[in-house]
Write a protein that binds this DNA or RNA. Structure first.
Lengths: 135, 135
DNA sequence: AGCTTTTTACGAAATACTTCGTAGACAAAG
DNA sequence: CTTTGTCTACGAAGTATTTCGTAAAAAGCT
């Protein structure tokens, strides 16, 4: 199995906001990211710049500096980042019980019929998988 | 509907660790909580004391100061705290989609057959509830 | 060319959170 | 009574994160 990242990906809250923009829109300039963030809340341009520079240092983002205006790309995928944050969150808040988390999330959410069906399908899949592997 | 807490409950990571002890063991002294924490990692006594004092100020805990050794009790329930943290986490990490979170949590399954059955039962319940309300 | 705007770099202030040292009160033990 | 230990209070240092001001370089404009 290829491990593209040996270290744990742990973006801070602000870094995560920026990653969301990069994941959604792809490679972007600081200006663009800052504009996106400012649709939700006021953030100074240099604040965003600094954060993105730090993210590049940390390896959360990569940047193309061949032009005067640098282009930043996410260096981690959304799925792996979510997985890491989720694991950490479950450990902290639900003492490691992913099931408790699922129950709580399901219980308090207005899930549509379609969504519930989706989950049921997934459960089916997991169960089948389990039997096949004789787990 | 009675709102026991108008403000959002947002314990920090350290505060959450302490709350876990209080939820599990009920009203406790600083000494007891500190001993519990030290089973996992080294923490100074005054560190725990300070945190618990802050928690009392913030309203996360209550304390009985009638004796020299104060007794601290949780002032928030485990369920409501988990719910608040969960909502916040889903917003941040899954852009508000609880379903994505559930799918991801389930997908990384170490779920046992029994746990999956539990979830299926919960889904059944939600679906029945939904039909009853003709939602 | 001269002025304005945009961008990066740098550093430091501001904020949030965690940790601990020290002091004083009180209690327990000898 | 004196010594030793435990507890609270307080403040401040340490660390992580966020925010921004300023400067210099590059680009755009008139």
């Amino acid at each position: 199995m290829i491990m593209s990242q040996s270290k744990k990906i742990r973006p801070t809250e602000s870094e995560l906001e920026i990653l969301q923009v990069l994941w959604e829109h792809g490679p972007s300039t600081v200006r663009f990211v800052n504009d996106q963030l400012n649709e939700d809340r006021e953030v100074g341009y240099t604040t965003t710049l600094k954060l993105m520079q730090i993210m590049a240092e940390k390896g959360l983002a990569e940047r193309d500096t061949s032009q005067r205006t640098h282009i930043y790309s996410p260096a981690v995928t959304e799925a792996e980042t979510q997985q890491n944050l989720l694991t950490q969150f479950v450990d902290r808040t639900f003492k490691g019980s992913a099931m408790k988390l699922v129950m709580q999330a399901l219980g308090n959410h207005n899930a549509s019929e379609a969504e519930l069906d989706e989950i049921k399908a997934l459960i089916e899949e997991i169960e089948t998988e389990g039997r096949r592997k004789n787990k």
